[in-house]
Design a protein around this nucleic acid. Structure first.
Lengths: 329, 329
DNA sequence: AAAGATTCATGAAACGTTTCATGAGCAAGT
DNA sequence: ACTTGCTCATGAAACGTTTCATGAATCTTT
């Protein structure tokens, strides 16, 4: 059942103003129109209370001024920040965002791509968790943090550089033995380069290091085992920790405190992401901050750019070290 | 300039299958169609790689299966949670969400409503900050936390009951003198009833109380003045605090600690919202939790319901006390 | 003053669906 | 056998825009 007729159309306005339909269109779109015509049309628009209908335009032009953003959720603060900045960037260009939460579900990722195609969105920005997702070719598609192929631009922080930066910062703080810690299942694809960069810088600087992936992301018994393996006479045999994610860093610090290890005196901690909770938390972790706004802006300009073929297939944006009070400097 | 032709249409499928256009439509929409016809059509669809185009349908039916959600941002965790649950509720019903960030700007609220109308969304859910916003009448409109008029349904937590609950919980913990604290400019409209409920319950229980609105939401010197005004010989003359918002409660607790006041031993603290950061923070404030999921679900069922005239103009959903470790129980 | 160039309104044809009035075909009831 | 009723495919008419080929009117140039 169609809704009841939804108000006057351009044809009604044209009739009321005594001009041609096309003229109304050009007035509405701010194109070149003679002054007296524009006046008549505008008057008629006001008289009738005409309201533009985007559906007609979408059908005719096959452009919706809408971009689909595919992301697991908006609860993770990093994702929430992305949503925010992408929306701001889109709005600046008069585009709307169609938000798609996958909840990390591969089937929903696929389903959303199909839906986006049906809705004739003008592009898709996606942060997916299916490495073998098949990317549509008939619609501009860019990814965040996931490299698929040279024909699908991937926008990410400079994860490798960030990892290296963390290592250098730990060294600067006087660390002699460091470790990298992450949740095993997370940090796939581009973000996994945080580890690579860390390793590379440690090797280069001759800083002894260890890599540890925690498989269990609920309890932290694994980490506690790790700790006890490294305790000798009440002292840790490493003094710096680079942790793949701020949220994990938070949890780790909590465990450290439980073990009466002081941060940063006994062990330096650096996280990754640059997420601050509520702006002024009591304990703010030092972190390699992602340039979220730049990532968002780049995603949008890229996905809206005329032809993606002239765009680099991997765009890495510079990270920033943020001192948070849990390292010496 | 139109995009290049975007693929086969129903007409193409009809031709390929040797049936009428309308038949294709009915197959695609899963309506009653004879078996051999359905077969032919489906075969043709596969052969041609036909993809449904929502723009045509939107124009014809004037329904877009899209709801606009107007909200300041997605950085505030309460908002982020709302976005999430509303999207889940919409998706369940095969609706999409068009996200509109106002950044607390009244003009943008107005602009978004206009845009939503142009886009012929099927409804609007809004959490606005303009008490004199003019609500469109030709489109289903529901608000969160803001009561406009009896003809605009407002969905909110039971703020009054929540305030009263907080007072009772403080009393239960043994508090003898309590205070309510909020940022003066915030908590307008429905949420301001947190204070009313608090007052009402205090009066009823004969619990002495004080109300304090902080006008400066950057520094906390105001709160520190308040504190010193209530210190007598190193001891506070109140022992319970109900704070209008979890995020403010966080900051307040920080100041209390700075003053060497112990939470909960010296002063009980209860916040409002039920926002947990990262799931397992070290210090989790006790809180009156908003039923965010129920709010979201109710917004969606309400805005999509056939006629809003049969819907209550104010729907209050029950809150829940969540113990967080910063009160005695 | 005539011819060419420019400006700008007109009318009509799309765009891809849904939906409605027809009517064909067939089964059941008398 | 003849109606009645049902199921279900057909063809065409919308829905509200944009855009394009025409051509009228005005301006510029010589």
């Amino acid at each position: 059942m169609p809704k009841e007729r939804s108000g006057p159309t351009m044809a009604d306005v044209a009739r009321e103003a005594g001009v041609a339909l096309g003229t109304v269109s050009r007035v509405v779109n701010g194109e070149q129109v003679g002054d007296e015509f524009r006046e008549k049309v505008n008057a008629a628009i006001r008289r009738l209370g005409y309201r533009y209908n985007n559906s007609g335009r979408a059908l005719r032009t096959d452009r919706t001024n809408t971009i689909a953003f595919i992301i697991p959720n908006t609860i993770n603060p990093y994702f929430a920040l992305l949503v925010h900045h992408i929306n701001v960037a889109l709005e600046k260009r008069n585009y709307r965002m169609m938000l798609c939460f996958t909840d990390y579900d591969k089937d929903r990722e696929i389903e959303f791509i199909r839906m986006a195609q049906q809705n004739r969105v003008d592009g898709i920005i996606a942060l997916t968790y299916n490495p073998s997702l098949s990317i549509p070719e008939d619609i501009p598609f860019v990814t965040i943090d996931r490299f698929f192929s040279v024909s699908v631009p991937c926008i990410a922080a400079d994860n490798f550089g960030g990892g290296a930066l963390a290592a250098r910062k730990l060294k600067e703080c006087g660390c002699r033995n460091v470790a990298f810690m992450r949740i095993g299942s997370a940090l796939t694809n581009e973000p996994s380069k945080r580890r690579d960069g860390f390793i590379s810088a440690c090797v280069e600087m001759g800083l002894p290091f260890e890599i540890k992936a925690l498989e269990d992301n609920q309890s932290f018994s694994e980490f506690e085992n790790f700790l006890s393996g490294h305790m000798h006479g009440g002292k840790l045999d490493f003094d710096g920790l680079f942790i793949g994610t701020d949220s994990l860093a938070w949890s780790i610090i909590k465990v450290l405190k439980k073990w009466n290890l002081r941060v940063p005196e006994d062990v330096q901690v650096i996280g990754f992401d640059g997420i601050r909770m509520f702006g002024d938390q009591e304990c703010v972790v030092s972190t390699i901050a992602q340039p979220v706004q730049e990532i968002a802006e780049t995603c949008v300009t890229t996905v809206l750019s005329r032809d993606l073929s002239s765009v680099p297939s991997l765009i890495c944006l510079p990270v920033r070290y943020e001192f948070g009070g849990t390292t010496k400097g």
